[in-house]
Nucleic acid binder design. Structure first.
Lengths: 172, 172
DNA sequence: GCATGTAGTGAGCTACACTCACTATCAGGC
DNA sequence: GCCTGATAGTGAGTGTAGCTCACTACATGC
């Protein structure tokens, strides 16, 4: 009985922690979305800007791969960024099929703003935080990421262990 | 000069921590999206299910408020949930303008599945984690949330103090 | 020099958010 | 009782972000 109580107490603590995490996810997302909107960007378009800032002029195909998105989607994102003057499509020097998505001056400027904004955000979250708490948070984030990745990579761990195999139940 | 070095070292640590957090946000979002898709739901529709599970049959107007979304958007979400058999629109007993969005049997069942799934997710993230690390993570999440909320609520803090006005450090 | 593959886009779909305009209904005031 | 104003929901239209499929233009290999 008391053993059972302990187990469910732990489960409650885990659920509470998850709720906090989910709330944090929502709030972080909101904050970033609003901040990006101030610069005339959406999340996806900012993602393109980010990749472009790291790699310099990039083929749409390569952008698609970097963003884990279909080439067609990149066409749309680049259309948007070009329409608002952040990037241009330049001809590829050796491959006439390809275009190199390239920052305009405004684009470069905005990319810098994004970097600065992210540093400010890091400051907002962590400035003045005691070292031990920061260490523990970083370690915790790392552990959570490891667990999630282990789970994602491992859809079917082994053979015949009888666990939850493949719930091929579909209803539609 | 050495002081400056320390400052930028701290800033680097903060940026690294932010990168970890952002990665965590992405991975958590992905995991939940995929998990919901297995139940035939999207994030927004699952949000509706969640509110319905908490409140029972609910007016679309109330759903709109609970989800912080326009009434028109709720119409679309409920259309989707009704088309896939999770909910029905029942007449409101006293107000003929309103409809009560109500679970079908399948909806109730799926809502239970969602709750179970969330508990499993909490387990995946936190099961077997040492107490001190869990404590520290929970406290850290709380602090980050507090900081973000203080920032959101405070677009213009006061008059002319210029600096960082009220660090409102709390960890409940 | 011809077959095959690759880069990008048009067309068309789902989903989620918004606004504006409209219908149906409710609730008051007189 | 009836008219007026607020409220519940939806149709129409827009923007963003994904997807697939089919197609053009070009590159490359044999």
């Amino acid at each position: 009985m008391s053993g059972n109580g302990d187990v469910s107490e732990m489960a409650d603590r885990h659920n509470a922690a998850l709720n906090l995490l989910l709330e944090l996810v929502v709030v972080v997302n909101d904050d970033m979305t609003r901040s990006l909107a101030r610069d005339g960007l959406t999340g996806s378009r900012a993602h393109v800007m980010w990749v472009l800032a790291q790699r310099g002029p990039t083929t749409q195909r390569d952008l698609a791969e970097a963003l884990a998105v279909s080439p067609r989607t990149v066409t749309g994102l680049v259309d948007g960024l070009a329409a608002t003057g952040f990037v241009t499509r330049e001809p590829h020097p050796t491959d006439r099929r390809a275009t190199l998505v390239t920052f305009t001056a405004h684009g470069t400027e905005t990319a810098d703003t994004l970097v600065r904004g992210q540093h400010e955000f890091a400051d907002l979250l962590f400035a003045g935080m005691p070292d031990d708490r920061l260490d523990c948070l970083v370690a915790g984030f790392g552990e959570l990421l490891d667990r999630l990745r282990a789970h994602d990579v491992d859809p079917v761990p082994a053979a015949g262990t009888g666990g939850i195999p493949a719930t091929t139940e579909e209803d539609r």
